[in-house]
Computed example of a mutant assay.
Amino acid sequence: MKPNVLHMIDSFEQGGSERTAIQLVRQLHESGRCRVRLACLQNKGTLREKADRLNLGEIPEYPLTSFYDRNFVTQLRRLGRFLKENEIDVIHTHDFYTNIFGMTAAALARVRARVAYKGETGGFRTPAQKRLERGAFRLAHRVVANSDAVRRQLLREGVPAAKVAQHYNGLDIKRVQIQSDVTRGEILNMLALPERRLVTIVANLQHPVKDHPTFLQAAARVRAAVPDAAFVIAGEGKLMADLRELAAQLGLKDDVFFIGRCEKVAELLSVSDVCALSSTAEGFSNAILEYMAAARPAVVTDVGGAREAVTEGETGYIVPAGDYVQMAARMIELLRDPKRARSMGERGRILVEAKFSCEQHLHKTLELYDELTVRPAATAQPDVALMPR
């Protein structure tokens, strides 16, 4: 019998975890192997249109204001009723907030298979948030880690090894493919970018952990060595004004292009010569996979699962976090040797297709659901002794 599966996401904004979740929901629905439902904490964002096209039925919203107020209890009761009325067999959450809310409600409703998710290492959560998350993981039957780096982090935090399932995010290659008849000049005009050699970073400007200042400091050194280089920052967030000011202080006012949230990622990457990641912490960066799938060489910081994707010197370069001098040197090297840059990019594309496809992500997810829904009930229980009372 097909299991009834509920996926829960924070919102429909264009974040990496949200895109990956909607992609997985679509694939599960199209597979016919389970009956899929979707719920959210915030009913906002441009991905809602894609979710609606799946015709999954009502997408309930459970707005939270705190984990400690009366509203949290009210929303738990609402979700509990939904889980029971729809006979949900598997709940699968996709981020910090849905982990805590979804695992708590599902444990109270005695959902037989509870799957949480971890897609980040250090640098994102306060000690209080980490305690809450550990409690949610105790209520889960499995915690999906999106890289081996995250898996190791979970083990260090005390999550039992048998409870952790490591699944790489799958990338839909179509996301970075463009029409073959579109020219570079047309794309540059569409994105309002100059006819220069472009170094691009795709990362939100919301959290300091993305460390755009290191990217900008590297850009200043690259600009001095490669006069026709320009730099593109794709993303939006509260740090935008500060980063613009820093770019001006570094003498890059006319060389750095802040293009905001980019709906034309494939087109942007197609005209980029080198791509970068400057984060001080990550789980497994979707941006790196997109760079590689678009056949672009990547210069990335040595954080999270970067080494699981980028092969040093073959598909890109890995530099220490915060080391703008080495980051700049690698960027300059690639800009000065476009033939080698293209070769590295092509090897990256081949690697993504072989190792990080969305089909593999779907296969591993279905295997996990089968394991959790057909095994004897006694082996399914989370660590009840550690549940909060």
Rank of each mutant, 00 (worst) to 15 (best):
H7N: 12
S11A: 08
V25E: 09
V36C: 05
A39S: 12
R48Q: 15
S66F: 02
D69H: 05
Q75G: 00
F82A: 14
N86G: 15
D89R: 11
I91Q: 04
H92A: 03
A105R: 06
A106V: 09
A113C: 08
A113Q: 12
K118W: 10
K130S: 03
R134I: 13
A140G: 08
A140L: 08
S147D: 07
A161D: 13
A162T: 08
K163S: 10
A165K: 00
Q166E: 11
H167A: 03
Y168A: 02
D172E: 15
I173W: 03
R175A: 04
V176L: 05
Q179P: 06
M190D: 12
P194Y: 09
V209F: 05
A219N: 05
P227G: 14
D228E: 02
D228I: 07
E245H: 05
V256F: 01
F258Q: 04
R261G: 13
R261H: 07
S279N: 06
F284C: 15
L289K: 07
A293M: 01
P297L: 08
P297C: 02
A298P: 10
V303L: 14
R307C: 02
A309P: 00
V310T: 09
T311S: 08
A321N: 14
I332D: 05
R342W: 05
S343K: 13
M344L: 08
G345W: 00
G348I: 12
G348S: 04
A354D: 11
C358S: 15
L366N: 09
L368Q: 14
V374P: 01
R375G: 04
A377P: 11
T379A: 09
M387D: 09
